[in-house]
Structures are given as structure tokens and as C-alpha cells.
Amino acid sequence: MSEASLLLEVEGLAKRWPGAAAAAVSDVSFALAEGERVALVGASGSGKTTLARLIVRLIEPDRGAIRFAGRDLLALSGERLRRLRAGLQLVFQDPLAALDPRRRVGRQVADPLRVHGLVPRADRPAAVAALFDRVGLDPALAERFPHELSGGQRQRVAIARALACRPLLLLLDEPVAQLDVSVKVQILNLLDRLRREEGLAWLLITHDLGAARAASDRILVMAEGRIVEEGPTAAVLAAPRAAATRALVAAEPRLPPPEPDPGPQPFTAPSVSPRTM
């Protein structure tokens, strides 16, 4: 990929919490191109969530540089930081915690449209309905409160709110870790569709290799605050080199292969007749 298409460049980023023995993030550098899908994996405590919050400047780093869309993110403040940060949206692990419990979800999706002056007041309900539609939600749900939605619906709302900012990059912090398998694939498919339609890039932070496999082309493996391995997702997971990567791959719960069981069966072979209608 060419220099010009780089969307996010992180260089020598470091953060140590006051009083902590080891740095949460130490000397992390990587780059991410426009439209690229990158996974950041690691065990809990490896520093991946801290790194994500450093990148959106919810935490201030001790050292290092972050360039986003060609601008130095760390040099900005106030209004200009607010504007630029809109292009870089965070999607949280627990969508119930990430939504204000006391406001209707439609209002929360409308917030970015309002504060960034993207859509005039009169057109906002229609714009919110369109966003709900894009993430596969019934626009009527805009009138609900977060606790009145299912887990999958809440995560869709959170994604709609991120999309409302018209971002170039999504920082997905374990977006499917708390969801059932069937809902998980729906959200992953939704994200993929949105990426293709909007040309989004993302950094998917996860400990779930299944999600990383499905939703990234390149993978960064983090351990003890550092990036210890990097490469194409399929290749890295097929032949992991770093110890941390090997541990992750070995620990992944996997199903046994689906051959028919040779052992004795109480019934004849399973047979479900397809619907004839």
C-alpha cells in the first residue's frame, strides 16, 4: 500500500499508569491504510484496550505520535480535536454500558448529526431512520430506551451512532464478545457490508480468533504492552511464531470436525426432508 493511502499511523506510543510496575502500552508502532481491516488480538491485560483508548485520546499517552488522516492527533485540542475525532469512532464491548440509559436511542444516534452540523434539524428524524435502516433496525425502535432492546439491537444502535459521525475508521473494542454466536455473525456481516458500502477501515480489538479471522486481513498480536507479531491474518493464525500467538491459537475452543460418527446410532442416519412447498 502506498504512503498516501495511510489513514492511521501510530509511532512509539507508550503509556504507564501511575504506580504500575509495568507499562500498559510500550513503544507500539503500526499503520493502517484506508479501507483496511486490521485485528488487534491479545489476552486480557495485554494492553489492547488501553491502546484503543490512547488512539482516540480518551487517555493521554506518555510518549509517541498518532497521525490520523494526515494530521497530528496529539497536537489538536478543543474544537478541532472534536471535529477530527468524529472521523474515528469507537464501538464498545458492552453496548448496554455504551448507551445512555436515560435517553431514547434515536436521540443518541442523532447527537453526532446535530453537534457536527451534518444534518439540519428538520431532516434529522429521516436521517436517523435511514441510519437505523442501514444497520438493519426497524426505525420505530428509535423511540425505545436501551434497556428495551436486545443485545444485538443495542450493538446495532451503537454502530449506527458511530456511522452518524461519517467516520473513516472504526475502533471496534470486542464488539461481539458479549453476543450469542448467531447474533455475533449477524453483527460481523453487518460490519462487513457497511465497510464495503462506505469504504470504512477498522481496527478490531478482540481475544476471539474466530472474529479476527472473519473480520480482518491483517493481524497484530499484543502481549505485555507490545506488538509481538504482525502479518496477514490467515498466515499468522495458521503458523503462529510468537509465544503469545501460539498460546492464543492453542486456547481457541474448536469444534470437532463434522464427519458422520462411525459409532452405533440409536436411529438411522439423520434425515430432515427439505420443505416441499
Binding site: R82, R85, F92, D100, R161
Partner: peptide, 21 residues
């Protein structure tokens, strides 16, 4: 809490976060 961080990330101004969130 996450929803306050989310409001910051979405770009709500400080006054509005105080007042609305």
C-alpha cells in the same frame, strides 16, 4: 462509564455532556 466516553468520542461538546448526559 462507557456511555460518557462514547459521548466524548462522538464529539459532544463538554457543556453538552455535562448538561445532557
Amino acid at each position: 462509564r462507557d456511555f460518557v466516553l462514547a459521548a466524548v468520542a462522538v464529539g459532544l461538546p463538554r457543556v453538552e455532556i455535562a448538561w445532557r448526559v
